[in-house]
Simulated assay, not measured.
Amino acid sequence: MKLKNLNTFIEIAQAGSLSKAAGSLGIAQPALSQLVANLEHQLGATLFHRRTTGMELTPAGEMFLKYAKKISSDLEQARLDVKHASQVPAGEVSVVIAAAIANLLAPELMMRAEALFPDVKITVRRAMSYPAAQLIREGQVDVGIVPGAKSMSNVKAELAYIDEMIFAGGIGTPLDQPGPISFAEACRAPLVLPSQGHLTHRTIDQVAFDRGLHLNLRTRQDSSSLLRKLLACGYAYTIMPRAGMLEGVREGKLFIRQIPDLPLTRQMFVITSTDRPNSAAVRAVRTLLWQQLERLSAEGIVPSLVPREPSPNDYPIPAPVTEDASVRARTI
């Protein structure tokens, strides 16, 4: 099966008709029809439903399209890696970042990558734990930082930091009081939590069940920015990892209280895919990601990082010159 035929199949699938694909490729329509027939014969499956309005992928065709795109992308990345083996990184890198810290990590990560490696194109996705795991399983991610990655397949996971679970709400709301709060009292408060597919919600739900407590769940919300707004306006409270709430605390909109009798933590991992090429571009972005985490840790936005040894996956990038943390805190 030739790469040229795979790319032609991708073009037909995206065009949705042989006539449109023929026009964009400059290939006669009968030749494209024969190519599709040959592919279907080789695969032993029907790839398209032929309709009067065009070509529609069958379930087998949808599956083959994913593989065809991945093969084409991997070969293009291999070409770039070989071409730039002794030069700067180049190519596309897909990054997934836990939704709670995406706003803190992504902008500067992308700006530094563009400044240092203009031939690297980064696509950043922010995702809760379950969607992130799905992206990783489907081979759509090169590198990222997500919770609970130790149990995920298809990745190399390095523990970055361990975050505590806290109670949070809007400044000036009734439960904005000094000192800690008990888990039972937190459960009685009107709560907004992520959907049940989220690792945080599943864990809290299980602890409440084990203790015979009922969560007073007012609503579910998977958008971390909207969740923080619901807290700030006094609509509800939440139980979440500390790092995810600090953006609102620094803005003077949210308070946080410790929950001493909820000894839960969330482990955050830097991950790299074991199914996708560990290219120079991927290694460079991974190193930039670690540097961003080191900066956030130094500023107290995320907990202290777990000590780690130098890795072969590190890319030689000088650490950025950082301002004094107190100066940066006034400007954020």
Rank of each mutant, 00 (worst) to 15 (best):
T8K: 13
F9E: 02
G16A: 08
A28D: 14
P30A: 08
P30Q: 11
V36S: 10
N38Y: 06
E40F: 09
H49R: 15
T53M: 08
G54M: 09
A68V: 03
K69I: 00
K70F: 00
I71C: 00
L75D: 05
L75H: 06
V82K: 14
H84S: 04
A85G: 04
V88C: 03
P89Q: 13
A90D: 07
E92S: 09
P107I: 08
M111Q: 15
A113L: 01
F117C: 04
K121Y: 05
T123K: 15
V124F: 10
R125K: 13
S129T: 14
E138G: 05
Q140R: 15
V141Y: 03
P147S: 12
S153E: 08
V155P: 04
E158Q: 11
L159N: 12
Y161V: 04
P180Y: 07
P194S: 11
R202G: 07
D205W: 01
Q206E: 12
L217A: 05
L217Y: 01
S224F: 08
S224H: 14
K229P: 00
L230K: 15
I239Q: 06
M240W: 10
A243T: 15
R250A: 09
K253Y: 09
R257M: 03
I271D: 03
S273E: 02
T287V: 07
L288Y: 07
L289V: 05
Q292M: 07
E294L: 03
G300I: 01
I301W: 11
V302F: 05
P312W: 06
V321R: 15
R330M: 09
I332N: 10
